[in-house]
Computed example of a mutant assay.
Amino acid sequence: MQLDKKTFVGSQLKQICICIFLLLVSCRLFGGQSQSPTPTETDAIFELVTLGDAGGIQDGNLSAFLFRVLSEPNYIALDAGTVINGINVSLANNAFKYLELNKDKKLSLTGNILHHHIKGYLISHAHLDHVAGLLIAAPDDSNKPIYALKSVNQTMQDSYFNWKAWPNFTNRGIQPHLNKYQVIDLVPQQGLSLKNTQLKVTAFSLSHSVESTAFVIEYQNNLFVYFGDTGPDEMEKQGNLAAIWQYLAKQMQTKTLRGLVIEVSFDNQQPDNQLFGHLTPKWLLSELTYFYSLVEQKQQFQSMGVIISHIKYSLESGLDPRDKIQQELQQKNTLGFNFMLAKQGQRIIL
């Protein structure tokens, strides 16, 4: 039977469409990443600046981020392992290009950001790689609050702000109080507005070698989550991550989760009995798969960024742990999460 040109062309187009469809399905099933376009300045709501991306041992690049609503010039710090060096590296990378900087002529650009734009600290836990930058900057910092769970604030008071390890720059604990920082205890799963910002935070307890914290940050109908150090639920046996995933899934019925920062400290070769309250690519994907199963509108994950932090710096020669972790995440990324490894000095809009 002979086909006329119109029928032949139609048949060929149909076959091409089928091939394209199969290719897309193949990418989805076998680890291809379903990337959404990077938000533009007009589409984005939040800005995240990475002051420090690593978990131990590289001093000068320890866990710390700045976070703000793009409509205001005020940040909240998410942990503070590195502060001054992180600001300097971020300035060198033009991460504050879109920030309307305060013009205090008595201060450098770094000083202006520290004094006038960082309006407080959300501290997930008191380990040094999450607070060292705050402690070192304290003598020259401006007055601002420290927000943390009660146990975290107590550890900070007992271990650092005790006139032995460091002067007491807070309004609590051993006298004299220097009153640089107002210490505010967060109540788990109870929202609180963050002073001098448009943001609201809800804290959730995480399982680590000490109590750690996840911060669900909210602006209007937009959400962002910052996770401090955490082990997987299957190993920790406390269900803390499940509680957060369930809360977020419910919130996502009416709100948009723009993104999250979560740790992956080790690659998959790290034995489960040596995680010390941390995640690997295998365990993160397991947790995210459970989260995915809870959310009714799956398309929301296509535009949600998953920013990987706290990768342990390695002194061993060979493959960079960042490269290995990135490979392991993508190899099993069958649900198409938008993974991005945090990098010091980087600006991300969400």
Rank of each mutant, 00 (worst) to 15 (best):
M1R: 15
V9S: 06
K14Y: 08
L29S: 14
Q33H: 08
Q35V: 10
Q35S: 04
F46M: 08
F46N: 05
A54I: 06
N61H: 07
L62Y: 02
G81Y: 03
I84C: 07
N85P: 07
L91F: 09
K97G: 08
L99I: 09
E100P: 13
E100R: 14
S108K: 13
T110V: 07
H116D: 10
G120P: 05
L134T: 04
L135K: 04
D141L: 13
K150S: 15
T155V: 02
F161E: 00
Q175E: 12
Y181K: 04
L186F: 04
T202F: 01
A203E: 00
S205Y: 00
E218W: 09
Y219N: 00
Q220V: 09
F224G: 02
D229P: 02
D233F: 04
E236R: 06
L241E: 00
I244T: 02
W245Q: 03
Q253F: 08
L260H: 00
L260Y: 08
S265V: 15
K282P: 01
Y292W: 15
S293V: 11
S293G: 14
L294K: 11
L294P: 03
K298N: 14
Q299V: 15
I311E: 01
Q331W: 09
N333R: 02
F337M: 08
M340P: 01
G345R: 05
